[in-house]
Design a protein around this nucleic acid. Structure first.
Length: 320
DNA sequence: CGCCGAATAT
DNA sequence: TATATTCGGC
């Protein structure tokens, strides 16, 4: 019921940008695929050395697919080690190698939703969404797959006539599975724009939604337009920001060149593999006090609950 | 052909 | 399961 909140949409975006720690894992794209496969480690305790002291082993980190750069040169010194003693395929064409499954974390999903919101459901197609997201390594297929699921999710909600954030429980026409719960938490982590459910399309006139600041059909991405110091960011700056933060600095090798070691140790699969620990109420109801389990800085920042508010609040419970 | 979207596969 | 891959239609 609060709607007068209209800070800068981009400000919010910036807010959502996860700290470097969060982005680090994304740089997985850097390591050569074959290396990752070679290292296909079944279990690695804590591949994410977050100095903060938040031993949450699962979720939260977004893994990006290894950027299959057209001509990526995986000449990692450390990486080279793997290609040597194996005697499999000496020359490893990055292509034909399977990328690790992308894990859609709340952050990634948020970007996804924002992009879709900006485009409008009708105009939101995988390729465009992908471009808007500006996530390095993200493929059209990745987005398409997620989009498909997202659409189904929206559809369900439409039927229920509720928008945004609450579980469509109570809907007798749909057996709720654990899968739904999981999915819902993810989707619930990002607010669903109004026009989504109403099937509205933001025309050129654009509705006064906090989601549609401008949205060019496609970022012309022309040369740079230096106009720093501007509150009303231009698309370029906007996107630039995104890009920088989205995947973080996949460019630089990790702090100490340990990337080779630590990264392959973090196969996305492994993460999605074991996620059992969940706190469930006696009645079997998720104990999500405020609604969703994921609480990014966004929420906290807005609320200013006062008290502890820093870092991502995965799960308040360190229980395991 | 590329792309989208739904089905299908893993 | 969630995500990837395939397939048919524009």
């Amino acid at each position: 019921m609060r709607e007068e909140e209209e800070p800068s949409w981009f400000a919010r975006w910036e807010e959502q940008l996860p700290p470097p720690e969060e982005l680090t894992p994304l740089s997985q794209s850097l390591i050569t695929p074959d290396l990752a496969l070679a290292f296909d480690i079944p279990a690695v305790p804590n591949p994410n050395p977050t100095p903060g002291s938040n031993p949450s082993p699962s979720s939260l980190h977004t893994h990006l697919t290894p950027s299959s750069g057209p001509h990526f040169d995986p000449s990692d010194p450390s990486a080279g080690a793997s290609s040597g003693p194996h005697g499999g395929c000496p020359d490893e064409p990055a292509r034909t190698l399977k990328r690790p499954r992308l894990v859609w974390t709340p952050q990634l999903h948020k970007r996804f939703v924002d992009a879709v919101a900006h485009l409008g459901i009708k105009n939101a197609v995988p390729k465009t969404i992908m471009q808007l997201m500006s996530v390095d390594g993200l493929t059209r297929e990745n987005v398409a797959s997620h989009l498909q699921k997202y659409r189904l999710y929206l559809k369900r909600m439409q039927g229920i006539g509720n928008g945004g954030g609450s579980s469509p429980s109570g809907n007798g026409s749909g057996p709720l599975s654990a899968s739904d719960a999981d999915t819902e938490r993810l989707f619930a982590s990002a607010p669903v724009p109004h026009h989504f459910l109403t099937g509205r399309s933001p025309g050129p006139t654009a509705a006064p939604d906090p989601y549609m600041p401008f949205v060019p059909a496609v970022p012309a991405m022309s040369t740079l337009q230096h106009h720093h110091q501007q509150m009303g960011l231009n698309h370029h700056q906007f996107y630039n920001q995104q890009r920088s933060n989205a995947l973080g600095q996949f460019n630089g090798f990790d702090h100490h060149g340990f990337l080779a070691r630590s990264v392959p140790a973090q196969p996305p699969q492994a993460i999605s593999m074991h996620h059992h620990h969940r706190m469930v109420g006696p009645a079997g109801i998720a104990i999500m006090p405020s609604g969703n389990g994921y609480m990014d800085e966004l929420d906290m920042g807005s609320r200013g609950a006062g008290g502890a508010r820093r870092e991502l609040t995965l799960f308040p419970t360190g229980d395991h």
